[in-house]
């Protein structure tokens, strides 16, 4: 019985001693939060204003399924659209759903683009979904999403 208790105490002591430096470290350097932190739901609501979003095959989202380096993940969004003055893609928004700030980029296109495509490289902190939200000139919203497996996170 005594032996058992001794081990218990030893165990708690070990936990406490390992905890203390970790806690003090956390106290003087709290993990900084992004000042423009936005959750995915919030961001979509802000953009659409509560309008329904349709998941459509017209929006093609090209992201690698496995990203070895989260710091550089190529993303390409292509939308089927004639891009004429009366019918064109107004905006393309790209989100990383689990990043501190989910909004990556908002692209506002015009008929002068000729083709509705946008491509860039984003950072992903962890394994998550990358989503694209597309606004057409008639006010409808289309979206597409794909999950990306991240081996090494690229944020922080």
């Amino acid at each position: 019985m005594q032996r058992r208790e001794f081990f218990k105490q030893l165990g708690t002591a070990a936990v406490v001693t390992t905890m203390i430096p970790a806690m003090s470290f956390a106290a003087d350097a709290p993990k900084p939060k992004s000042p423009n932190a936005f959750s995915y739901k919030q961001a979509v609501e802000v953009i659409t204003g509560g309008k329904p979003v349709e998941i459509s095959s017209k929006v093609q989202l090209k992201v690698p399924e496995i990203a070895e380096n989260g710091a550089v993940v190529p993303v390409t969004v292509t939308v089927e659209s004639p891009m004429t003055d009366s019918d064109y893609v107004k905006a393309i928004h790209i989100f990383a759903t689990k990043n501190g700030n989910t909004r990556c980029i908002d692209v506002y296109l015009t008929p002068a683009n000729g083709k509705a495509m946008f491509s860039t490289r984003i950072k992903l902190g962890q394994t998550q979904e990358v989503a694209a939200l597309v606004e057409l000139s008639d006010g409808t919203f289309l979206s597409a999403a794909q999950s990306v497996k991240v081996t090494i996170g690229g944020c922080g």
């Binding site: 710091a71 909004r103 495509m117 860039t120 950072k123």
Partner: peptide, 16 residues
């Protein structure tokens, strides 16, 4: 384009 910080270092913007 309105850009936030989650774009990669040395970003590239491609359109038509």
């Amino acid at each position: 384009m309105k850009v936030w910080e989650s774009l990669s270092v040395n970003p590239v913007f491609t359109t038509y």
